[in-house]
Each structure stands twice: as structure tokens, then as C-alpha cells.
Design a protein around this nucleic acid. Sequence first.
DNA 1: CGAAATTTTGATCACGTTCAACTTCAGTGG
DNA 2: CCACTGAAGTTGAACGTGATCAAAATTTCG
Lengths: 260, 260
Amino acid sequence: MPGTIRKIAADRWDGPLVARLRRYVELGPADIDDLRLLMEDELNVKKRRDLIVEGYEYHKLCFIKEGFAARYKLLRNGKRQIVSVLLPGDVIGFPGSFVNHSVFSVVALSDMKLEVCALDDFVALCYRRAKFGLALSWLAAHEATMYAEHIIDIGRRTPVERLAHFLLEIHARLAAVGRAAEREVDLPVSQEVMSDALGMSVPHLNRMLAKLRGDGLITLDGRHVTFADMRGLRQLAHFQPPSFTRIPAPAATIGQELIA
Amino acid sequence: MPGTIRKIAADRWDGPLVARLRRYVELGPADIDDLRLLMEDELNVKKRRDLIVEGYEYHKLCFIKEGFAARYKLLRNGKRQIVSVLLPGDVIGFPGSFVNHSVFSVVALSDMKLEVCALDDFVALCYRRAKFGLALSWLAAHEATMYAEHIIDIGRRTPVERLAHFLLEIHARLAAVGRAAEREVDLPVSQEVMSDALGMSVPHLNRMLAKLRGDGLITLDGRHVTFADMRGLRQLAHFQPPSFTRIPAPAATIGQELIA
DNA sequence: CGAAATTTTGATCACGTTCAACTTCAGTGG
DNA sequence: CCACTGAAGTTGAACGTGATCAAAATTTCG
């Protein structure tokens, strides 16, 4: 692998954004420099703060460096449905920044560190370097896949299965960014959040948690989960993490990386 | 508006794909030509045929010219959850073509006409014209928004509300491609499909349909729905269609279109 | 230490599933 | 032309699951 020295230099700034995009596409030093220049701001957000409020305009992309958040909608009857739990490496502002009036709200579930850039600036970069537009599409496909799995969860899985699936998903996603060990996780969320994500009541969620424990599939210590029987849990949840293709390199312009 | 003659010529071929992408971005004659060249095939598919089967590789994008389909997953217990109903102008292969082994299946709900292109070819085009990569992102954001709304539906709306929301969504989407009148739709799907989409049993769906009829919100004649009280239905369903931003034009290269 | 948030447990009951039978309708072949 | 078939829609009765409400136990945090 040539150019090692330059590569390391550019990597000095490697936010969660770079790590995330690298799952889909090769990024050279020039790419990373471009990305860094895009960032307007490093933002610190306190727990329980609303980041995006339904009905307002919001045209930024925020990349989570640290902390957790939830994308949700509040219904007239006071019920809340959480659409997705956001972890380090995830993007806030998708898909909200693409519509005129945000349809969902996002709230910080813990203190957070974010990197912010304007959507318009990102789009401008995409025009200059098409690979970023593609990376955004891949990221969107990833997001959509998780949403779809969430639909399956809520629609046709029983409450225990749902919970099992949720635990495995969170574990897999945290492990993918190096924040979880092989067979354990610290849950980033309260039971209320889980129940709002999984479309059930808090007491029932609690009982299902107890059931998983009783069946010897997990052990619990506060919010620390240990997967006692990963196989059994996976089977119960029908869990199989999707593996994403990488974006093909441009055919005509091989070596573009080196020029940059 | 200059260049009218060329524009009309190019517009002669305007599949549902062009109409769909135009919701997000300006397309010039050169763009449309490029798109047309991409298309490998026009495909006819019979009702009940599987288009994508879970677990297999699939790396094409299909644009629906005519007909309906459903993206779904079958669970071990025999239950089926429909993730989304696909209408003319929609894309088959998203997000399935972005993962190594498709997680969902797609089945034709009616006879269909499709335009097919290879994902790799589309990606190659994106490298040449960045706007297509962005268009794909926007389309993906649109898809993700619908999925998210579907999660809300199943998770926290009551069965009647869910059904009402479903009817309104299908109506709005069909109207957007000119296949539905102001206050009526021909449902493209059976009650079994609806129940699998909404995560309830067929009998219950049927009763909720009867309830909407009884409450004077809709009238039914076979699969022809007339919205007797659109306001009331919208309120019941908390329905508000998202409106999408358009992709900003490239700042530096105004007039790029003319060169092409 | 006091106050608030979170987790746990219990009792009751409505809602929606399940299963079953029956109806209606479109297509098909005798 | 009508009987046959299979798919789709409709209705009913019984059961079980998970929501709801309430309260206690526990932890976290100001």
C-alpha cells in the first residue's frame, strides 16, 4: 500500500463520519480533507435536548461522534413511537433534512458530541466528487434497511422476539463502531425508550426482559447485557445482520485517487 | 424556456423513472438520453411472480412502468410482513441491490411492465453526472420517510387509524403519478395484502374497513374507494404527506446543462 | 438528603387474534 | 349454459395476550 505517510497524516482527523463512509467507499487523503473543510462546527448537546423538532425546517447533517439519540414522532393521543435509535457514526438529519418541514423529531438520549455541516455544502461537495453522492445513497440504503427490519419487528414478531432482535441489533451496531465486546453491551437506552421503539408498554417490556433472563438467553446487570446464549437468541429473533456491498470504483478514471 | 424543440424530442422517451427523478432534480435532454442508454431491457412480469427472492444476489434497478408489487419478508412462523407496496414510478431493487444477499423478497401483485438497468451501470453514470447520485439519495430519503411513517403506523396507531393512513397514502401516491382522481382510488391490493402490510389479521382488517364505512368516512364498491369525508379521515389518520426539497443546482457550474 | 426518574410487580379487562363457516365472484371446462 | 374450482371478502364465537392503571421498590442525580 503506497502513500502511507500521507494517508496517516490525513487520518489524524477521522471522525465517525469518515469511519462510516469507509464502510461503503474508499476515501483518499484528498477526500478526507474535503470532508473536514465542510464541517462548520463541533457541537455539544446535553441529554434530553431536542435536536430536531417536528414541523420545523432543518437542513443540516450532523454526524454523531459521541452519545445517543432517538428519532421519534409524538401522536395526538400522547403516544410516542421511536423510529430509530441513533448511535455514534450515525447521521442526524436523514431523512429530515430532505423534506421541507421535518416529519420527525430527534432528541438526545445522553450528552452528545456532534459534527455539523450544512446539507447544501455537502451537496456542493457531491457535485465536485460524485463518490460522496453515492456514499450518501449507500448510507440511505443502510438506513432504509434498518427501518424495514424495524417494520418486520413491530408488525409480525412477538414481543419477546422483538426485544431479542432489538438487543442484537443494538449490539451489532455498537460492535461495528467498536463500542461493544463480543457478547455484551451496555444498553444506551432506558426501558421506556425501548418500549417506545418496540411499540409496547413499559411493564410488558420489563416482563419480556425478565423472560429472556429466565430462559437463560441473557443476563442483566442494570443496563449491562450479557448474551448467555447468542445462538438461541439469534434464532429466536430471526436475526441476520445485512452485509452491504461496497460502491464500485469509477471505471474510466482509475487512479483518480492518486491525482487528488 | 429555450431549447424547446430538443426538449420535446428527448421527452418522447419519458418513462416513470424520468417523472420520478424530476420530482427531485432538473433533468435536461442530455440527462434523459444518458438514462435511456442505461436501460437494458423492458420486462413484462406476470401476477404472483417473484421478482426478488430473499437470500439471493440481485444487483439491478427496476423502474415500474405499470402494475403493482410488494416488498415483504416471510417469517419462520409462516407470517408475512409487507414492508412496502410498490406503485408505478417506484424502484424495485432498493435497498435490496445494495446488500450482498437480499433481505426481502418482492412479488408482483398484478401484471407488470418494468424497465431494468444494472446497478453498476447506474453507478457509472453517477460518476459521470453527479446529479444522479444525488437523485438516488433523494429517492432513498423519500423511501426511508415512507418506511418511518409505516413504523409509526404499526407501532402506535390503532387499527382504524392505520387503515385510514394506508388508504390515504396509497391514494396520494397514486394521485402523484396520475392514477387516482381527487377523492377516490382503485385499491391495487387485496385485503390479505393490506392486513400483511398493516400487521393485523384479515378479519380484523375487514371489520375496520366496515367501521370506516359505517362512520361515513369512505364508501366502498369492491376495491373502489371513495373518500366521503377526506378531512375527517385525514384527522383520524394524522395524515400529512411530506413535501420534498429539490436538489440544489451546482453552484460553480451553471450552464453545464447547455454544454452537454 | 430529598426529588425525580427508572425499574419492578400485581390485578383487571378490552382488544384483536384465531379458527371456522359461509358468501360472493371470476375464471374454466364439461 | 351451468357446474366446478379457487380466490377474495364477510361474519361469528371464544380465547389469550398485552394494555392499562396503580403502587412499591430502586436508582440516579441535583
